[in-house]
Design a protein around this nucleic acid. Structure first.
Lengths: 189, 189
DNA sequence: TCAATTCGGAACCAATCGGTCAATAACTGA
DNA sequence: TCAGTTATTGACCGATTGGTTCCGAATTGA
């Protein structure tokens, strides 16, 4: 019927996400995006409405890839003990050599206060992740005997720890310090 | 000798900080700053070098006011039990109705990855705050019997929790959820 | 009183911002 | 083969960006 698109939307979004991730929304110019996405100005505006909608789409993509796979991992009963999965999740932060933090977390601090749509999106993502942590707790030796309420509170605390780690990681905390926080947190649960 | 400055530098910096705090570095324009600081363009460039130096000065001011007073509170033996002071510090987050998060924390995510000077400043501020938490622990019934090492690790964990709370607060988490995280965290120490 | 100095304000600057558009190229179904 | 449709490209747009400069007014010490 017509000329097909020459670039892959999702691939372009991945690249856009990487730039937003590193530089933030306002810190990223159209030119930064075009260069990273390797497409021309016109093509970008054919495929997306504007800069804001690209950010939203990138956030959705982060949700569908990173967050969703994390949730699937936490919920998967075949992936091992629940507590071990939670440890894996927390230790993944310190292993992130690029110290990019977490896109969702950056979005929360960067945009949530000025963009209600992003704020809402981030909020649901966080709560879904929290529920997945609670599900993982239910699969742990200790957690399965707890009340749902206690699992919920513990999950919120773990998610909170996760967010803190993302911040301290981006702030340049040493890997061993992050590891000590993970160990200390998990030893008290 | 000459005409004196008509505005108060620190007061102007406080206003500048508030704008940077809410909108981030790149999200804040010169016009935003001028409007908030209530001074004219020329006066601003007489008093400061450029936008970047205003941000640095605002960060320093945050350090000297907010952070330093927090540290003084945590270290002050007359301000009560160490653990109670830590609780006060954590609960102050959920009480922040404006949900502005923490300027230092925002700076870490917003600027640390692209500005080494800010990154270094934030890093020292964080470690000083961490040391103050450790000092408060030493003034608590339980903590005074711990080894310095254990206090250090616990302090890092508490600081990490604090950062997480700042993120979740800005992300719009409900006050009761934040309170539950604080209670749960402190009950395990 | 007066030279020195700095004030607030506005005009001005080049550069960059996000965004549009017309011309051209490439693909599809008939 | 060709009409119809959509993607690509890059020139172009007005607005805004951070920053400079110049001005008359105001305040000082001598």
């Amino acid at each position: 019927m017509a000329r097909p698109r020459e670039f892959d939307i999702d691939e372009a979004l991945d690249r856009a996400m990487a730039v937003f991730w590193e530089k933030g929304y306002e810190g990223t110019s159209l030119q930064d995006l075009l260069q990273a996405m390797k497409i021309a100005r016109g093509s970008l505006y054919k495929a997306f409405e504007d800069k804001h909608s690209i950010y939203l789409a990138a956030l959705d993509r982060y949700d569908q890839t990173e967050v969703e796979s994390g949730i699937a991992f936490l919920c998967d009963p075949k992936a091992g003990d629940g507590m071990a999965k939670i440890r894996t999740m927390l230790e993944a932060v310190k292993a992130d050599k690029a110290r990019r933090g977490c896109f969702m977390c950056n979005a929360a601090l960067d945009r949530a206060s000025v963009d209600a749509e992003i704020s809402a999106k981030v909020s649901t993502m966080l709560h879904r992740l929290e529920d997945a942590v609670a599900a993982a707790l239910k699969q742990s030796r200790r957690g399965k005997r707890w009340s749902a309420k206690r699992r919920a509170v513990t999950a919120a605390t773990i998610l909170n720890t996760y967010m803190g780690l993302r911040v301290l990681s981006r702030a340049g905390y040493a890997e061993k310090d992050l590891q000590a926080i993970v160990d200390n947190t998990l030893s008290t649960i």
